[in-house]
Design a binder for these strands. Sequence first.
DNA 1: ACCAAGTCATTGCAAATGCAATGAATAATC
DNA 2: GATTATTCATTGCATTTGCAATGACTTGGT
Lengths: 133, 133
Amino acid sequence: MFEIIRDIGAITRKTEIKTNAEFRRLGLANNAFIYVIRTYEKPGMFLGELADSVQIDRTTAFRTVQKLVDSGYLRLEDDAKDKRLRRVYVAAKGKAVYPELHAFEQHSSDTLLSQLTADEQNELKRLLSKLVY
Amino acid sequence: MFEIIRDIGAITRKTEIKTNAEFRRLGLANNAFIYVIRTYEKPGMFLGELADSVQIDRTTAFRTVQKLVDSGYLRLEDDAKDKRLRRVYVAAKGKAVYPELHAFEQHSSDTLLSQLTADEQNELKRLLSKLVY
DNA sequence: ACCAAGTCATTGCAAATGCAATGAATAATC
DNA sequence: GATTATTCATTGCATTTGCAATGACTTGGT
């Protein structure tokens, strides 16, 4: 049954190569676009929370976010109560580019799922969500 | 419906972190264990073919295979007819370690799929195989 | 209030990564 | 059969990666 785990890995790597190529021109390669999308959709996560939500190593995530702050896509804000935390928000450039990122993710998703019926897509979504817990 | 593509990416990254940690002691981190498993199961693939089969960048794969040859896990052989090709086989060390790699992959798979019934697992496998084509 | 244990962001560093480019060999087209 | 286009392994190089370690801060237990 390990075909599942293998297929999942292969799909991820293939998808990442395409997406990174697409967004390199924006300085959003190396999965950087993921942070912009997620932050737009759920503003105010702290750094580690954001990293965990996409299952990327926290130090890698930290550096990527730094770069995105420098390039104007994201913005950091100290938490008022807990001095350890730095919360992440989209900056102007991130807001501006979100529609394009979202459209591409939608397109990637459509391409990936094009071989499945609507029912099959729903079932796949249900099954995968049970794996992520 | 892009939850699917997101979940798949998250599962992959989480799985890779665990597996790399497990096999670092053998010098098989950074997805190196994948090459040993795949080569054991399908000996004689040429380098690019092996890389493509797991959807990893060919230059990265090339360097990883080199390392595995140096460390005695794999072995390369020139193709008799096509002088461009170098085919990959497991060496003694690779053969010896395969059972352990396989067992761990099985364990990872079981853990990942533990929330699904047998029927659901079969359905998930069927659906994913349609995405990989 | 204190101490231990846990969590956070951050840095150091060696190693891995991947895009771009090269040259050799083969396949395809004319 | 010559020429062009592909496909292969391989290298160069700048960037990214992630484990390990650090110090600041918070939480929980006593």
